[in-house]
Simulated scan of single mutants.
Amino acid sequence: MTAERQERYGWRPGLAIFAILAGFFVALCLDFTALAATTERVVVNRYSGLAIEGFDPVAYFTDSAAVQGAPDFEAAEAGAVWRFRNEGNRASFVTHPEIYGPQFGGYDPFDLARGVTYAGNPRFWVVTGQRLYLFGREENRDAFKKDPPRFLKDATARWPRLKQSLAQ
Score class of each variant (00 low, 15 high):
residue 1 M to Y: 00
residue 3 A to Q: 03
residue 4 E to T: 11
residue 5 R to H: 05
residue 6 Q to E: 06
residue 8 R to A: 08
residue 9 Y to P: 14
residue 9 Y to E: 11
residue 11 W to N: 11
residue 11 W to C: 08
residue 12 R to N: 05
residue 14 G to H: 08
residue 20 I to F: 14
residue 25 F to Y: 14
residue 25 F to W: 15
residue 26 V to F: 13
residue 27 A to M: 11
residue 29 C to Q: 14
residue 30 L to R: 14
residue 33 T to E: 11
residue 34 A to N: 06
residue 34 A to C: 01
residue 36 A to T: 06
residue 37 A to S: 13
residue 38 T to A: 07
residue 40 E to L: 15
residue 41 R to G: 13
residue 43 V to M: 00
residue 44 V to F: 01
residue 45 N to H: 12
residue 45 N to W: 06
residue 46 R to G: 10
residue 48 S to R: 10
residue 49 G to A: 14
residue 50 L to H: 14
residue 51 A to P: 01
residue 52 I to L: 10
residue 56 D to G: 09
residue 56 D to L: 14
residue 58 V to P: 06
residue 61 F to T: 02
residue 62 T to R: 05
residue 62 T to M: 03
residue 64 S to H: 11
residue 66 A to L: 08
residue 66 A to F: 06
residue 69 G to I: 12
residue 72 D to Y: 02
residue 74 E to G: 07
residue 74 E to H: 06
residue 75 A to P: 07
residue 78 A to H: 09
residue 79 G to H: 09
residue 80 A to D: 07
residue 80 A to K: 10
residue 83 R to I: 12
residue 84 F to R: 04
residue 85 R to I: 13
residue 86 N to P: 15
residue 88 G to Q: 08
residue 90 R to K: 15
residue 91 A to P: 04
residue 95 T to A: 12
residue 96 H to D: 12
residue 97 P to T: 00
residue 100 Y to N: 06
residue 100 Y to L: 05
residue 101 G to K: 01
residue 101 G to V: 02
residue 101 G to D: 02
residue 102 P to V: 02
residue 103 Q to V: 13
residue 104 F to P: 12
residue 105 G to S: 03
residue 105 G to M: 03
residue 105 G to F: 04
residue 105 G to R: 00
residue 108 D to K: 08
residue 108 D to V: 07
residue 117 T to S: 14
residue 117 T to K: 15
residue 117 T to E: 05
residue 118 Y to D: 10
residue 118 Y to N: 13
residue 119 A to P: 00
residue 119 A to G: 04
residue 123 R to D: 01
residue 123 R to T: 03
residue 123 R to C: 02
residue 124 F to I: 06
residue 125 W to L: 02
residue 127 V to R: 01
residue 129 G to P: 04
residue 130 Q to E: 13
residue 135 F to V: 03
residue 135 F to H: 04
residue 135 F to W: 15
residue 136 G to H: 08
residue 137 R to C: 06
residue 138 E to T: 13
residue 140 N to F: 11
residue 140 N to Y: 10
residue 141 R to L: 08
residue 144 F to T: 05
residue 144 F to P: 01
residue 145 K to S: 00
residue 146 K to C: 02
residue 147 D to F: 03
residue 150 R to Y: 11
residue 150 R to D: 10
residue 154 D to N: 06
residue 154 D to P: 00
residue 154 D to F: 01
residue 156 T to E: 12
residue 157 A to C: 02
residue 158 R to W: 03
residue 160 P to V: 00
residue 160 P to T: 00
residue 161 R to N: 03
residue 162 L to Q: 02
residue 163 K to S: 12
residue 163 K to G: 02
residue 164 Q to S: 08
residue 164 Q to G: 09
residue 164 Q to F: 01
residue 166 L to A: 02
residue 168 Q to C: 11
